[in-house]
């Protein structure tokens, strides 16, 4: 019991600590590729600290939904993160929910963000919510199918089981094509869900292009800090999912201190690698028009479906 509590607390701290770093690292990579110097990778920490200290301005139009949303989004994203194995393959909270629960916890946050976007009464918020809705609805089927393709190879929908088995090289299929297709699909989903280029641009505040930023436009002070932190956490959740499902090597399969130490280092390296990859992608592609996003997400869906098909064909 004590051990379980320690692991949950440790995982909470790692997630909270690592998520601003991911955001900072992506920004840094982008800056370097654009031949700029860029801010320090630790800048997001300073931003959060500054936002927490600032006086928040709340619109008189809003209801309690607006002030409650940042806490709900923060809690649901962090809860989703606690269900994903980070540096120990068997998370103590494994019993609380499988991968579907992770998907739906993230949807809980999205739902309240969409409401908050509408609450202030400005057209920007509504526009953001409406666009977020279409992106979310197109990513979800692809995500469920790609998850299922992975779950099949391990005979489980529990993340801990999937990661643990893969780390111990159990049930590895000889032909990796279902895996690769699911990976590609999940990567596209991750980019869309976390609002990165080419689906959304977190750096923009232009009404023609913004999605997530439009939705949270009215937030300031500690509310904005929580929302930004939650956005970083969401990125961390998706990167952890990809890293640990497809390449769980290095993760601690036992609870020995040395193994956990190695697991933590391996985790940080994997996450940093993926963050840099996202930075590179953000530099290589232009943001897509909203109605072209459907094509990209359609590709993700087809990839996931093909992954499933390949799995069954290879088996039979």
């Amino acid at each position: 019991m004590l051990q379980a509590i320690f692991l949950v607390v440790a995982q909470t701290i790692v997630l909270l600590a690592v998520s601003p770093f991911i955001v900072g690292l992506i920004k840094k990579v982008k800056a370097r590729l654009q031949l700029r110097r860029g801010a320090s990778v630790f800048q997001p920490y300073a931003d959060l600290a500054k936002l927490f200290r600032k006086e928040p301005v709340v619109s008189t139009t809003t209801s309690w939904i607006f002030t409650a949303t940042p806490y709900i989004v923060f809690a649901s994203t962090l809860a989703a993160g606690l269900l994903v194995p980070i540096f120990v393959s068997r998370t103590p909270l494994n019993f609380a929910g499988n991968i579907i629960a992770v998907v739906y916890l993230l949807a809980l946050g999205t739902f309240f963000l969409m409401l908050a976007g509408l609450d202030a009464g400005s057209a920007f918020g509504g526009m953001g919510s409406s666009r977020e809705a279409i992106v979310a609805s197109l990513t979800e089927p692809a995500m469920i199918l790609s998850i299922f393709a992975i779950a099949l190879t391990k005979g489980s929908t529990n993340l801990s089981t999937i990661v643990h088995k893969t780390a111990l090289l159990e049930g590895i299929v000889t032909d990796p094509s279902p895996y690769l297709m699911a990976l590609a699909a999940l990567f596209i989903v991750a980019i869309a869900e976390t609002g990165r280029v080419p689906v959304d641009n977190p750096a923009t505040h232009l009404e023609l292009t913004m999605i997530h930023e439009a939705m949270v436009l009215e937030y300031s002070g500690r509310y904005l800090a929580l929302i930004e932190w939650a956005a970083g956490l969401k990125l961390a959740v998706f990167l952890s999912l990809i890293a640990n499902i497809f390449a769980p090597w290095g993760i601690a399969t036992t609870l020995a201190p040395a193994a956990m130490g190695i697991g933590l280092v391996a985790y940080l390296l994997k996450i940093a690698g993926l963050a840099m990859l996202i930075g590179v992608i953000e530099c290589m592609f232009a943001k897509l028009r909203l109605f072209r996003v459907t094509d990209l997400l359609g590709v993700a869906f087809i990839l996931a479906l093909l992954g499933l098909l390949f799995f069954y064909i290879l088996r039979s």
């Binding site: 806490y71 709900i72 923060f74 809690a75 649901s76 962090l78 809860a79 606690l82 909270l93 494994n94 019993f95 609380a96 929910g97 499988n98 579907i100 629960a101 916890l105 005979g155 489980s156 929908t157 529990n158 089981t161």
Partner: peptide, 18 residues
């Protein structure tokens, strides 16, 4: 091993994390 879900645990987790 196949799947598990505890709505109560999730509810408590959400309250604690808020």
């Amino acid at each position: 091993e196949f799947s598990s879900l505890s709505p109560m645990a999730l509810a408590l987790l959400l309250i604690a994390l808020s």
